[in-house]
Simulated assay, not measured.
Amino acid sequence: MDNSKKTKHRVYAMSFAGVYPHYITKAEKKGRTKAEVDEIIRWLTGYGQKELQAVLDNKIDFEAFFEEAPALNPSRTLIKGVVCGIRVEDIEEPLMKEIRYLDKLIDELARGKSMEKILRKE
């Protein structure tokens, strides 16, 4: 058995479209909107709304979602804090860090943070 390859996290193969409704539900439960969730995703990844819809329609997995992102926002490195008990800035695996950046932004939205603060400016 070849152990030279690390086992991929299960989330990498999950369809982004399968998780997306959970982001919307989390936001809407706290009085936020789908439009705000989409704005966060577009800010983080550089996808336009049409491209984001294509990702959802084609059920692209998380790995491809981030690999194919048109322009990952350079300000995303300003995202700090804890998601799922792990400090985002301490995550070493690049793809997991991108996923947790998105999780953190959705958490901040659900906690009532203003969009101006969520969409960090350098």
Score class of each variant (00 low, 15 high):
residue 2 D to N: 14
residue 4 S to P: 00
residue 6 K to R: 14
residue 7 T to W: 14
residue 7 T to S: 12
residue 7 T to R: 15
residue 8 K to F: 11
residue 8 K to P: 04
residue 9 H to S: 09
residue 10 R to E: 14
residue 11 V to W: 12
residue 11 V to A: 08
residue 12 Y to E: 13
residue 13 A to Y: 09
residue 13 A to T: 09
residue 13 A to S: 13
residue 14 M to E: 14
residue 14 M to D: 10
residue 15 S to E: 08
residue 15 S to F: 09
residue 16 F to G: 08
residue 18 G to L: 12
residue 18 G to W: 08
residue 19 V to F: 14
residue 19 V to I: 15
residue 21 P to S: 06
residue 22 H to F: 15
residue 22 H to G: 13
residue 23 Y to I: 01
residue 24 I to F: 06
residue 24 I to H: 05
residue 25 T to H: 13
residue 26 K to R: 11
residue 27 A to K: 01
residue 28 E to C: 06
residue 29 K to I: 02
residue 30 K to M: 11
residue 30 K to Q: 13
residue 30 K to I: 00
residue 32 R to A: 01
residue 32 R to T: 00
residue 33 T to R: 06
residue 34 K to L: 10
residue 35 A to G: 00
residue 35 A to W: 00
residue 37 V to S: 05
residue 37 V to K: 06
residue 37 V to T: 07
residue 40 I to K: 03
residue 41 I to T: 07
residue 42 R to Y: 02
residue 42 R to F: 02
residue 43 W to C: 01
residue 43 W to G: 03
residue 43 W to N: 03
residue 43 W to Q: 02
residue 45 T to A: 09
residue 46 G to N: 06
residue 47 Y to H: 07
residue 48 G to P: 08
residue 48 G to T: 15
residue 48 G to E: 04
residue 49 Q to A: 15
residue 49 Q to T: 11
residue 49 Q to M: 03
residue 50 K to V: 15
residue 51 E to G: 04
residue 51 E to H: 07
residue 51 E to P: 07
residue 52 L to P: 14
residue 54 A to F: 11
residue 55 V to W: 04
residue 56 L to P: 05
residue 56 L to V: 11
residue 57 D to F: 10
residue 59 K to M: 05
residue 60 I to E: 03
residue 61 D to F: 06
residue 63 E to G: 06
residue 64 A to C: 04
residue 65 F to L: 07
residue 65 F to K: 05
residue 66 F to Q: 01
residue 66 F to D: 01
residue 67 E to Y: 05
residue 67 E to P: 04
residue 67 E to S: 07
residue 67 E to A: 09
residue 68 E to C: 03
residue 68 E to I: 00
residue 69 A to V: 04
residue 69 A to S: 10
residue 69 A to M: 02
residue 70 P to D: 10
residue 72 L to N: 00
residue 72 L to T: 00
residue 72 L to D: 01
residue 74 P to A: 07
residue 75 S to M: 03
residue 75 S to E: 02
residue 75 S to L: 00
residue 78 L to K: 12
residue 78 L to W: 00
residue 78 L to Y: 05
residue 80 K to W: 00
residue 83 V to K: 01
residue 83 V to R: 03
residue 83 V to N: 01
residue 85 G to V: 02
residue 85 G to F: 10
residue 86 I to S: 07
residue 86 I to V: 13
residue 86 I to T: 10
residue 87 R to Y: 08
residue 87 R to F: 05
residue 87 R to V: 06
residue 87 R to G: 02
residue 87 R to L: 11
residue 89 E to H: 07
residue 90 D to G: 05
residue 91 I to F: 15
residue 92 E to L: 14
residue 92 E to N: 14
residue 94 P to Q: 09
residue 94 P to V: 13
residue 95 L to D: 03
residue 96 M to R: 15
residue 96 M to D: 09
residue 98 E to D: 15
residue 99 I to R: 03
residue 100 R to D: 02
residue 101 Y to S: 05
residue 101 Y to L: 02
residue 102 L to G: 11
residue 102 L to C: 14
residue 103 D to P: 06
residue 103 D to A: 10
residue 104 K to G: 08
residue 104 K to V: 05
residue 104 K to D: 02
residue 104 K to I: 04
residue 105 L to Q: 13
residue 105 L to I: 06
residue 107 D to S: 13
residue 108 E to W: 14
residue 109 L to F: 14
residue 111 R to D: 15
residue 114 S to V: 03
residue 114 S to F: 09
residue 115 M to R: 05
residue 116 E to H: 12
residue 116 E to C: 03
residue 117 K to F: 09
residue 117 K to P: 05
residue 119 L to K: 08
residue 121 K to V: 15
residue 122 E to H: 15
